Amino acid sequence: MELSKLTIKEIKAKVNNFEEISEDLIEKLAADSRKGVQKLARQIVRRQEKREEAIAKFKKMSRHEDRLRQQGYNLIAGIDEAGRGPLAGPVVAAAVILPEDTLILGVDDSKKLSEKKREELFAVIQEKALGIGVGIVDSQTIDRINILQATYQAMREAVADLEQVPDYLLIDAEHLPETDLAQAAITEGDSNSVSIAAASIIAKVTRDRILVDYDQQFPEYNLAQHKGYGTQKHIQALREHGPTPIHRTSFKIVKKLS
């Protein structure tokens, strides 16, 4: 690339098409007399440093899956849930099987990600995963069997929803009862396992979309904003309007305001 014949805009357009920029090109950009090109060189260095950090983080978060593959397990499903604490809506669990050679940069505990980033990663996981299963347990069932048992039920439904039967389950902080599959509970698994982190994103985005739909039915509760969690505005709406059919009447504050 002969930089002197290109405008800064043209240089930016060209380098933005490269996934990685060679050190030789970065040196040429840094040596250019134009301050805009020098600034671009610094931006590229920072961008590539961030990418290397993201790759290193992904590899670190893959250590549980790598260890299990060395032991002969191939279809390793990460499992996580979303919606255990809210006052309204279902609890949703997801099970995700990722291929061995995948690289999904930025995957992390869904609670640490912005809504925009979760949506972006949701699409990437859908594209790259070997299998995705989702389990949804409604508020009436939560009231009947309690939230812990409802969470377990959602997790079992998510595993059953997979097209392939996994040979190992990695679960965020839980052991899943009533299953014969080999499993391990991973402490803070959504931050320490790529499979569980991917499952946390699928579960969170799926549940959030359900609450956005419910917002159309019950606009006075502003469910699209707080997703059923016990915010001040949500509690005030409960005081004014009482619970809806999607509220968890077994939860203390909902019962109190019923």
Rank of each mutant, 00 (worst) to 15 (best):
E120T: 03
L121W: 00
L121S: 00
A123K: 15
A123D: 13
V124A: 02
I125G: 00
I125S: 02
I125C: 02
Q126Y: 05
Q126F: 04
E127P: 01
K128I: 09
A129V: 00
G131C: 00
I132W: 04
V134D: 01
G135I: 03
V137S: 11
V137G: 10
D138H: 12
Q140L: 10
T141Q: 13
I142S: 08
R144H: 12
I145G: 07
N146E: 01
I147H: 03
I147K: 04
L148R: 09
Q149C: 03
Q149F: 05
A150F: 10
T151R: 12
T151Q: 09
Q153K: 15
A154G: 10
A154Q: 11
A154S: 12
A158Q: 02
A158I: 05
A160W: 03
A160C: 04
A160S: 10
D161Q: 07
L162W: 01
E163Y: 11
Q164I: 06
P166C: 12
D167Y: 12
Y168D: 00
L169R: 13
L169V: 11
L170E: 10
L170F: 07
I171R: 12
I171V: 15
D172I: 04
E174C: 09
E174D: 09
H175L: 15
H175N: 15
H175S: 14
L176E: 04
P177Q: 00
D180A: 11
L181F: 02
L181D: 03
Q183P: 06
Q183I: 04
A184D: 14
E188F: 14
E188G: 12
D190L: 05
D190T: 05
D190H: 05
N192S: 14
N192C: 14
V194N: 07
V194T: 13
I196L: 14
A198W: 08
A198H: 07
A198L: 06
I201R: 01
I202S: 01
K204G: 05
V205E: 01
R209E: 15
L211W: 10
L211P: 14
V212D: 10
V212R: 12
V212G: 08
D213P: 07
Y214H: 06
D215E: 11
F218P: 15
F218N: 13
E220C: 05
E220N: 05
Y221F: 14
N222D: 15
N222Q: 15
N222C: 10
L223D: 10
A224G: 09
Q225V: 14
H226C: 15
K227V: 10
G228A: 06
